[in-house]
C-alpha cells in the first residue's frame, strides 16, 4: 500500500466539487446540536457521546463510522427518538425530536419484521398506523414492494424469506411511511459478504429513485466509502466527532470504483483516523502456540 502513490482524499474533481456545493445549498434535513449522552453505571458515569454536532442535507446519504463501542448505535437511537440524550437536541426538518415517530424511519440490524404479518402487511403497517384505509395502504405497499423487487413474495411470511430479502422488506416498510430521514443501524451487518454487496447496490438504486435522506451506521470501511456522500468518523471513549469526510468518489457508484485512487485514498484516510498509526493492536495480546511442523512435504 505504502508504495502506491495515492492522491489526497481532499482532491475532488470539478464535477464532484460542484456536486458538493450543490449539496450544501440544499436545506438541512437533520441537525444535531451538542448531543451528549452519559450512562450511570455501577463503576461511575460513562460518557458515550460527548458534544456531537453535525447536520445532514436533504437527499444526502451520510455514513457514521467508528470503532466498536464508540456510541454509533446510541447516537442513531437518540436520533430516531428511541433514547433521550443527556443534553443537546436533534432537529428533523426544523422541529425537535422528542420521541420515536413516523418522521424518523429506522432499519435495524435484526430485521424486526412483524412475524405474524405477510410481506405486504408489514409494509402496510406504517400507512395504516397513520390512519390510511386498507385500500390506500395496500396499493401504496405494492409500489414499495415492487421497488425493492419482492412482488413475487408479497404474501410470504418473514420466516420464509432469506436475510437479504427480510432486510429489503424492512427498507420498503420504513420507506412506505415516507419519513424525512431514514436511519439505518448496521442494516447489512448480519448478512453474508455476497448478499451485503448486492444489498449495498440495491440501497443506492433505491436511494437514487426515492427522495430520501439517509443516515447509515456501519463499521465497514468499504461500505461507508462506497455508499456515502459524506462520512462522519466517530472517536471512541467518549464518542466525539473526529472528522466529517467528503467522499471524492464520483457518482453513480459501481463496484469497479473500489480500486479507484480516490476511493482508496479516502479509505486509507479513514482507516488512519480510526486506527492511528503506532496504536494498532496495542491491547490485543497475541498468543503464539508451539505447534509441530505441519505434515506437508
Amino acid at each position: 500500500m505504502s508504495t502506491l502513490e495515492l492522491p489526497s482524499y481532499l482532491d475532488q474533481t470539478p464535477e464532484v466539487a460542484a456536486r458538493f456545493s450543490r449539496l450544501r445549498e440544499r436545506p438541512v434535513a437533520l441537525e444535531v446540536r451538542g448531543l451528549t449522552k452519559r450512562f450511570e453505571t455501577p463503576r461511575g458515569v460513562v460518557t458515550a457521546l460527548d458534544d456531537v454536532s453535525f447536520s445532514v442535507h436533504k437527499r444526502e446519504l451520510m455514513c457514521v463510522i467508528g470503532p466498536s463501542g464508540c456510541g454509533k448505535s446510541t447516537l442513531v437511537r437518540i436520533l430516531a427518538g428511541l433514547e433521550t440524550p443527556t443534553s443537546g437536541e436533534v432537529l428533523v426538518g426544523g422541529t425537535a425530536v422528542s420521541g420515536p415517530g413516523p418522521d424518523c424511519g429506522m432499519v435495524f440490524q435484526g430485521y424486526t419484521l412483524f412475524p405474524w404479518l405477510s410481506v405486504k402487511e408489514n409494509v402496510m403497517f406504517g400507512p395504516k398506523m397513520a390512519g390510511k384505509s386498507s385500500f390506500t395502504a395496500e396499493s401504496e405497499a405494492r409500489e414499495w414492494i415492487d421497488l425493492v423487487g419482492l412482488s413475487r413474495f408479497e404474501n410470504a411470511y418473514p420466516h420464509q424469506l432469506s436475510g437479504g430479502m427480510k432486510q429489503r422488506v424492512a427498507i420498503a416498510r420504513a420507506l412506505a411511511n415516507q419519513p424525512r430521514v431514514l436511519f439505518m443501524d448496521e442494516p447489512f451487518g448480519a448478512l453474508d459478504a455476497q448478499t451485503r454487496c448486492n444489498m449495498q447496490s440495491y440501497l443506492l438504486e433505491i436511494w437514487k429513485n426515492v427522495d430520501i435522506t439517509i443516515v447509515f451506521i456501519t463499521h465497514d470501511l468499504d461500505e461507508a466509502v462506497y455508499l456515502s456522500d459524506r462520512i462522519l468518523v466517530l472517536d471512541a471513549n467518549p464518542g466525539r466527532v473526529r472528522e466529517i469526510v467528503e467522499v471524492p468518489v464520483p457518482r453513480p457508484r459501481s463496484e469497479s470504483q473500489l480500486f479507484d485512487p480516490s476511493f482508496m485514498a479516502t479509505r486509507k484516510h479513514i482507516d488512519e483516523l480510526m486506527h492511528p498509526p503506532g496504536q494498532e493492536q496495542k491491547d490485543t495480546p497475541v498468543m503464539r502456540l508451539a505447534v509441530s511442523n505441519p505434515d506437508v512435504v
Binding site: 430516531a80 420515536p100 415517530g101 413516523p102 424511519g105 429506522m106 406504517g126 416498510r173 420504513a174
Partner: peptide, 8 residues
C-alpha cells in the same frame, strides 16, 4: 421500537 418508528 420498530412499530414506534413507523408511527404507532
Amino acid at each position: 421500537e420498530a412499530a414506534q418508528t413507523l408511527g404507532a
